[in-house]
C-alpha cells in the first residue's frame, strides 16, 4: 500500500476523533434555570431588561457592572459582569453572557451584544421627519 493512502487514512481517523472532541466545546445557549441547577459555566442569550436598574459605579468597583437580563424562557435574572459597562450598552437588543450562577446572581466574565444598525436608526429618523 502506498504511503499516501496510509497518511490519508490517518488524517481521516484523526479528523473524526477531533470532530468528536471538538463537539464537546460546543453547546446550546443555556438559561438561568439551567445555570442554577447545574452550577456550571455556560453561555446565556437573552434580552436586556431596560426598565430595571443598570449599575456601574467605578468609585465602588471599576470592575463590576450589573444589569438585568431576560433569558430565552423569559426569566429575569441579575447579571454581574467583571468589566466596566460597555459603550452603548443601553441600546443593545441581544445580549450573550458567559459565566455561572452564584447566590441567585449570574456572575459573568464575557459579554457580547448586538446593537441595532445605524441604518435602521436613520430609516426611523427619516420616517419620523416631514
Amino acid at each position: 500500500m502506498k504511503k499516501i493512502y496510509i497518511i490519508n487514512i490517518l488524517v481521516i481517523l484523526v479528523g473524526i476523533f477531533l470532530l468528536f472532541s471538538a463537539s464537546k466545546d460546543m453547546s446550546t445557549y443555556g438559561t438561568f434555570d439551567a445555570a442554577s441547577a447545574s452550577g456550571k459555566r455556560m453561555k446565556v442569550a437573552g434580552e436586556l431588561v431596560k426598565d430595571k436598574e443598570m449599575k456601574y459605579n467605578p468609585e465602588v468597583d471599576a470592575n463590576a457592572f450589573s444589569f438585568y437580563m431576560s433569558d430565552a424562557d423569559g426569566h429575569d435574572a441579575k447579571v454581574l459582569l467583571n468589566k466596566p459597562k460597555p459603550q452603548d450598552f443601553e441600546r443593545s437588543e441581544q445580549v450573550v453572557v458567559t459565566g455561572s450562577m452564584r447566590e441567585g446572581i449570574f456572575v459573568a466574565d464575557e459579554l457580547l451584544m448586538k446593537c441595532p444598525s445605524k441604518y435602521k436608526d436613520e430609516e426611523i429618523n427619516l420616517r419620523n421627519q416631514g
Binding site: 468597583d61 470592575n63 463590576a64 454581574l80 467583571n82 468589566k83 452564584r102 447566590e103 446572581i105 456572575v107 466574565d109
Partner: peptide, 9 residues
C-alpha cells in the same frame, strides 16, 4: 464581593 479573586480585575 461576588466576583472572586480569580476573576479578572
Amino acid at each position: 464581593g461576588l466576583l472572586t479573586q480569580d476573576q479578572l480585575n
